[in-house]
Computed example of a mutant assay.
Amino acid sequence: MAAPPRVLSSKLKALTRLRCEIFQTSYNPKNLRTGAKYLRGNLAGPAMANYYPKVISLSQLAREFPKMGIVDVKEAQRLQDVEDRKRRGKGTPKKAKTKADSRRSAKRR
């Protein structure tokens, strides 16, 4: 004679719970979505970073080896342009040290 379905299902649930404890898997009797499949997977970031070659620019070389005297022409021109703009008064505005110095508080008065 077979066991009634309720007794059988409760024993199967207990067996499943015990199996999950032993093999360190998640116990999910209601089959809810947990995202465990994606958490078990390998991370994509390191694989993608290793796929693309590292490109070294002239400015990186100049920063790495300052004694070699390498000059990045584009960077030198950019710095010269910034300096010219500052002399003409077109540079970036100074940061406010106090709340009274800020332009926003001056406008609200």
Rank of each mutant, 00 (worst) to 15 (best):
K94I: 02
N28W: 07
G41N: 06
G69F: 00
P93F: 00
K95P: 09
I22M: 07
K107Y: 04
N31R: 03
A47S: 11
N28Y: 02
D72S: 15
L43F: 01
N31V: 03
L61H: 05
A96K: 12
S59W: 14
G35E: 13
S26M: 09
E83Y: 04
K97Y: 02
A2L: 11
F23K: 08
S57R: 08
L61Y: 06
E83R: 13
A49W: 01
D84Y: 04
K30W: 10
N50T: 04
A14L: 12
V82S: 11
A2E: 05
K97N: 14
A47V: 08
R88Q: 12
R6W: 08
R17M: 05
S57I: 00
R63T: 13
E64I: 07
K86L: 05
K94D: 15
S57W: 00
P66K: 14
K94M: 14
C20H: 02
S105R: 10
G69Q: 10
T92A: 06
A96L: 05
R103I: 05
L12G: 02
C20G: 10
V82F: 04
L79W: 00
R6V: 15
A100I: 07
G35P: 01
I22S: 07
A100E: 05
I56R: 00
R17F: 03
K74Q: 14
R104A: 14
F23G: 03
V7H: 05
E64C: 09
R63G: 11
G45W: 00
S59P: 02
V7L: 11
G35Y: 02
C20D: 06
V73Y: 07
R88D: 10
F23Y: 11
R19C: 12
S105Y: 12
Y38M: 09
G35V: 01
T16F: 00
V73A: 15
V73G: 01
Y52F: 15
R17L: 04
A49V: 06
T98G: 01
A44C: 13
A47I: 08
A49F: 05
K54M: 12
A96T: 06
K86R: 07
Q24I: 07
G89R: 01
K37H: 06
S26V: 04
G41C: 05
A3S: 04
L39S: 06
N31F: 11
L12F: 07
